[in-house]
Simulated assay, not measured.
Amino acid sequence: MTFGFASSPAAPINGAADSPSRLARMLEPAEWAAAGIPLLRNPREVVSGLHTRHLPTPATAIVAVLDHEERLTASASFARRSVPADGWDFRNALLAHLRRVIPHDLRRRAPARTAVLLYCRDGDERWTEEDGAWMWGLRDACTLHGLRCGAYITLTRGGWQVLGEGRGGRRPSSESPPDAFGGTTKPGALPLRAASGAAEILRRTAAR
């Protein structure tokens, strides 16, 4: 599996003519890499845990909030609408789901929790303009909800990749069967740890 930021022709923006405003609401790979996004200590554990909880299929986004010890505080999954990729629309969707599952941290002097986004899509692991729109949307949604902007992760047929970090793996993938990874009953599995007292919050919010 190769990693990189070459633009992929496999995931075009849904046909509409590019507008300057829409193109301004996406982040180029260099902008994302320079944004100081905190590194995940164990990205495989995060990806596996979210895959087990939400079982995403292509065009499904999962936004998750992690505490300072990288434990899951809340998560929500939803289907991406079939409209041209626009960071504004993605920001609004992410913010709406964050508001449903966790209170904001706007009163804090500095963010204490981090939001990460896993997006399951068709195509290969290379960066696309759609990824750029999701990155813009995640960064803006985090600012408006008082969260630290965390990793953007893609899940494709070839596996998963943390864009901007060069870290990834073949499993889970968009074709992985349910509970193949991250389950708590399988030897050697890496479940995503849940914060104490968050059992009810961890019941995923899904709009499919």
Rank of each mutant, 00 (worst) to 15 (best):
L40R: 04
I201P: 03
H145E: 11
R99G: 13
R203Y: 01
T184P: 02
E31R: 14
T57I: 15
L39G: 05
P38D: 06
T185I: 12
F181R: 01
A96E: 14
A115F: 01
W136D: 06
R203L: 08
P38Y: 00
A64C: 12
L72K: 03
S21P: 04
W160D: 03
E165A: 14
N42G: 01
G87K: 06
G123K: 09
S196L: 14
P12V: 11
G188N: 13
L39H: 10
G188R: 08
A206Q: 09
S82I: 06
H104F: 02
H145R: 07
A115I: 08
T114C: 09
L144D: 08
S77Y: 00
R80T: 15
F90Q: 14
E130G: 12
E45G: 13
P103N: 03
G146W: 04
K186F: 01
R41Q: 07
R80Y: 00
E129F: 09
R121Y: 01
R99L: 11
M135Q: 12
N92T: 13
R71P: 01
N42D: 15
G87N: 12
D105N: 14
W88P: 01
H104R: 13
L117A: 08
S82Y: 02
A199R: 07
P29Q: 10
W88M: 09
R126K: 00
G36A: 04
R126W: 00
P58T: 08
A17R: 07
N14M: 14
P103T: 08
E129A: 10
A35I: 11
A207T: 14
D105Y: 00
A195K: 05
T128R: 11
V65F: 05
S19W: 10
V162W: 06
R108S: 13
L55H: 11
A76E: 07
A35H: 05
M1E: 02
L144Y: 04
L39A: 15
P84T: 11
D89V: 08
A206D: 11
N14V: 12
R148C: 11
P103D: 08
A11H: 09
R113A: 08
A110Y: 00
A79H: 11
P172Y: 14
P103K: 01
W160A: 04
E70C: 01
A151N: 01
I62C: 05
W127G: 02
I102T: 09
A24I: 02
V83I: 10
A199N: 12
H54R: 06
S176M: 07
A16E: 12
G197T: 11
L39I: 06
N92S: 14
P56Q: 09
T143L: 10
P187V: 05
M1R: 06
D105H: 04
I62N: 01
P20W: 09
P178T: 04
E31S: 15
E70A: 07
Y119F: 15
S196Y: 03
R22E: 11
P178E: 05
P187C: 02
D86N: 14
I201T: 08
L40V: 05
T143K: 05
L202A: 05
I102P: 00
